[in-house]
Each structure stands twice: as structure tokens, then as C-alpha cells.
Design a binder for these strands. Structure first.
Lengths: 97, 97
DNA sequence: CGGTCATTTCGACCGTCATCGAATGATGAC
DNA sequence: GTCATCATTCGATGACGGTCGAAATGACCG
């Protein structure tokens, strides 16, 4: 956890695109707020969306490396990928300021 | 105006979408690199793009409030909007870490 | 097994947007 | 005025992606 990740250009652009969707950003913030893993069902309360679309967005967030997925039987929970988020913000700050 | 701007939700999401395009991001970094105002023609060297598309992207960057535009006769130059960039990075850092 | 629930995949629809050629506008040089 | 140059606008096209219903997958329970 001490090491800071370095993002490839592709990763960096993929994260930017993933965060640019309002629903995905809201979902990610929801996951970040909780101390423990956030169950899939909890998203439905915060973002009004069909199960199909929700599943799609979770896949995008995972593909961008922004969240980690835990599967417990038929339930799925998510936790934030703190290192990647930190690396992204750091890279953006380094580029833009 | 104060040193730190606060972004509305709409502004924040618009900036995210604007930065999510590779060419626009490259253009913005080009503008940030220079100490002085960057002429429109200088972009063509860094990003291979038609004049029409370039004009389109500059309009998007301006609409997002990320750059300022200077018109000198038939030439156009751009400077970064430092306060907005700072506010965006700050907001993102505050949300994601 | 049969049934229910959580999640995913499939397929299609539709809006948004990046892209560029061609035409237009605007400016400056001669 | 005429012409060349820089930039913008217009219109069309094609691709990408968000959306959801319906069907499918997988897990738990009795």
C-alpha cells in the first residue's frame, strides 16, 4: 500500500472516460462513503437504474480498475481501489496544475 | 473573484466529459506547457487533426471553462484557466480520496 | 427436484459526439 | 478591389455507448 501506482496512458484515459458518466461517478462515491464493502443492492437506492444498466456500469468501473469485486454466493459487493484512485488524482494534478 | 472557484455539479460533469477525450486532453496539456498564450496553429503540430475538428474541440474546452481565448486579428490564442483547473482537481481529490 | 431471488448476458434502440469536406466569414497584404 | 490565409460554421456520416426488456445463469432453500 505504500507504493504509488503508475498509470499507463491507456489506463489513464479509460479512467477519465469511466468517471465522466454521472451515474458511475455517483456509484463510485457511494462505494467510497462506506467503511465496509458495499452490496450491489445498495446501489439501487442511491441511483435509479435498471439491474441490467447497473451491472453494465459496475463492469466498466471494474474494467477501469477503480473498484474491487467480492462475490459471496449470489451476492456481490464492491470496495474502492484506493491506490488507483490516488494515482489518478495524482496524475491529473501533476498534469493540470 | 476569490482564489478558489467552486464548481456546480453541471460544471464538474461537463469538465469531466471534456477532459475524457484524448485529443482535447493533449491540447490542454499543450496550452499548459507554454508560459505565453498558445496560438491556434501550434496545436496542429502536436495533434494531427483537421481545422474543423480542432475548432470544435477548442469550443468545447472554452465551454467547459478550461481555457481563455484571445483574438488578435485573424489569429486566435489560448491560455489555461488556472482557477477552474485547480478547482476541478481539488473537487476530484476531495471526492475520491 | 421446483421455485425464488440476485446478477448477468443478449439484443436492440436511440441519443450523443468525434470527424471531416466544403462553404463561409474575417482579416491582412499587395 | 483581389487574393491568400486563418478560423469558424454547416451538414453529413459513422462510431461509440447508455439504456432497458427479456432471457439466461447461478445460488440458496425447502
Amino acid at each position: 500500500m505504500a507504493t504509488t501506482s503508475t498509470l499507463t496512458e491507456d489506463q489513464f484515459l479509460l479512467i477519465a472516460k469511466t468517471l465522466a458518466d454521472p451515474r458511475r461517478y455517483a456509484i463510485l462515491r457511494q462505494i467510497l462513503e462506506s467503511e465496509t464493502a458495499t452490496p450491489c443492492s445498495a446501489m439501487r437506492d442511491c441511483v435509479e437504474v435498471s439491474p441490467a444498466t447497473l451491472s453494465h456500469h459496475m463492469k466498466e468501473l471494474e474494467a477501469a480498475g477503480l473498484i474491487h469485486v467480492q462475490r459471496n454466493g449470489k451476492f456481490v459487493s464492491y470496495t474502492p481501489a484506493a491506490e488507483i484512485l490516488k494515482a489518478y488524482v495524482h496524475r491529473l494534478s501533476s498534469d493540470l496544475t
